[in-house]
Design a protein around this nucleic acid. Structure first.
Lengths: 339, 339
DNA sequence: CTTAATTTTGGGAGCGCTCCCAAAATTAAG
DNA sequence: CTTAATTTTGGGAGCGCTCCCAAAATTAAG
């Protein structure tokens, strides 16, 4: 089986290279009858254009890069990421892009691979998963005019596109729910305060307290790192200050918090109510099933890709923004199922 | 900033295109002094060769494809995959390959993307994560002579390279441990029996029973699907038949089994002992901490990549095989910590 | 039927590399 | 110092496409 090229297909169909190219790329100006004939030859031979040649000649690679920063590498095993990737991969498939994964573990790796991202030689666009607010990659991408979509809004008002979820509102709703249930000492296990997700969910917590004129108690707030172990430690730290409810900024941390409570011999929800954030599958199977704030993770992945393609095709300005709503999912970790 | 090319670097360094190419590719026959001069220009300008041009001229893409089959898409959120990907990504980074993810959700997607995998146009090689034993992709890859490494050995003795873990021995050790603890009714929650992992771990279970002349009780064996919900259902199904220990073929399923036991009001390990398989992080934080069979998932990812690169560089024959050992990690789900 | 406008087609140039071979430079041998 | 062997260098050809423009074919207008 010798390699098929445009030229060969052209010969077989009795047309020129250019015409075959037009058919392959769905260019309009081809006589319908010719298009049919060419398409038939393509189907029969199973021809597929060489992506490398395409990239070189067309100055586009057809590849989207998903970047997971070094800082949160340890979180990559959180089920959040696979879910996000499923959405991203699915959208890539339907829009004929290839998904490429950039997982940085060390600073050298980051140094080595960053240039591949910055020159559009390799990827047509980049999706950045939640970064520390001061990550240097963002300004670099902006400066090099690489089409970029951030997952989670940036700290400052940078000219960059992003998708996000309404973290502040979601946290507000969750904490308000706890307060409405009668809890008067609601603790917070927060995400890293150098990320917008962490900051925003904390802000929602504060807003909820403020809206009911409840004074802030510093001893009930602990910054953690979105990991199970982090949630566990944070909960242990809070426990002596006698909370009767706790808002945990991620389901995975909530699992850790539940473990700390179990070890302390406390019963959920009788002794203490708990709300998570994310609604990962593990929330539903936790003991007790976790009341949590749902964010449409997979959907977010799909929309990130679609936004990115929009940027690639129609230019970077103005930056696009999209914020998905969250939804409080009530299970059994706060008491009676009915509100 | 106009684009840098080999030619431009050559001009700046006062040498020819070819010489720069040799320096970039580490080709030996360059005078040391010239090499130094050229390297300096490259460093100063920040030149990086265009990957598309390289692919086209060199007939290699520098991309490794990781394929997750449609059949197990629902398992992709299992922490096993991120861990595996971390290993794969890390090895790709150190060996200067780019990792590309192929996640198929529907049959059409599979149809559409398979050709990209089969012609070496797009990827230099493919890593296949655990497939159903009858997946048609394997023979196709073999026939097209695409460098391929399977994660998990194939069903028949196909001429294909793979890495695996000693599933049979690992399961044997786990079940023997349960038997040694005095359990006389050891149940098995198995993985899908159309996968080698599922079959092998079950085989290890059977071997352990056989080695102690314990009769096989069909009512104590249930085939499941490696999911939490699957483990839960399987455990419920087994419970009426009064097992006093259970070997569960994955940690995630073990979590489901624990949930079923908790709901049934049974205490672990007092009423029933349980062993998992994988040693995911969640095993250590389960309630009670799960005794399980450790497989070095991340390491496996690294080795898959290195094996694949070996195939790419040195040819497909003979197929390479590697089987990593497993290790029983004793925690508290089977009773006293000491064996 | 002729000419102009429009649609469709073909082929040259070029994308930025690698590969290969011949030429030039250098080193070793006599 | 001359010639042969070896190392190093340069440039042509080609990888398989896209892009663009000019030419050919077709259709519309008068």
């Amino acid at each position: 089986m010798n390699k098929l090229t445009l030229e060969k297909i052209a010969q077989l169909a009795g047309v020129s290279r250019s015409t075959v190219s037009r058919v392959v790329n769905g260019h309009p100006s081809v006589k319908p009858e010719v298009r049919r004939r060419v398409q038939q030859v393509i189907d029969e031979t199973g021809y597929h254009p060489d992506p490398a040649a395409r990239s070189l000649a067309g100055q586009r690679s057809g590849i989207i890069g998903l970047v997971i920063p070094r800082a949160f590498q340890f979180l990559f095993t959180d089920p959040y990421y696979p879910r996000l990737m499923q959405g991203i991969a699915q959208a890539c498939n339907t829009h004929n892009y290839i998904l490429s994964l950039f997982l940085f573990h060390t600073e050298e790796e980051e140094k080595k691979l960053t240039p591949k991202l910055l020159r559009q030689q390799f990827v047509d666009g980049v999706i950045l998963s939640a970064l520390p607010t001061d990550d240097p990659l963002i300004p670099q991408l902006i400066q090099n005019e690489v089409p970029t979509v951030m997952i989670g809004r940036p700290a400052e008002a940078l000219p960059v596109s992003y998708i996000d979820v309404s973290n502040i509102d979601g946290a507000f709703e969750a904490v308000s729910y706890l307060l409405g249930l009668g809890a008067n000492r609601v603790a917070a296990v927060n995400g890293p305060q150098n990320t917008m997700v962490g900051l925003d969910r904390f802000q929602g917590y504060l807003n909820a307290l403020a809206s009911r004129q409840i004074p802030v108690d510093e001893s009930l707030m602990v910054e953690s790192d979105f990991s199970e172990a982090g949630g566990y430690r944070a909960m242990q730290q809070i426990l002596p200050h006698q909370p009767n409810a706790v808002f945990v900024a991620s389901d995975t941390m909530a699992l850790g918090a539940l473990r700390a409570l179990r070890e302390a011999g406390l019963s959920v929800p009788d002794d203490i109510a708990i709300v998570g954030f994310d609604d990962l599958p593990l929330a539903a199977t936790a003991d007790p099933p976790l009341t949590t704030v749902r964010q449409p993770i997979r959907r977010l992945g799909v929309q990130a890709v679609e936004m990115l393609i929009d940027l690639i095709q129609n230019g970077l300005t103005p930056p696009r923004h999209f914020t998905a709503p969250t939804e409080l999912v009530i299970r059994q970790s706060c008491g009676a199922k009915t509100k």
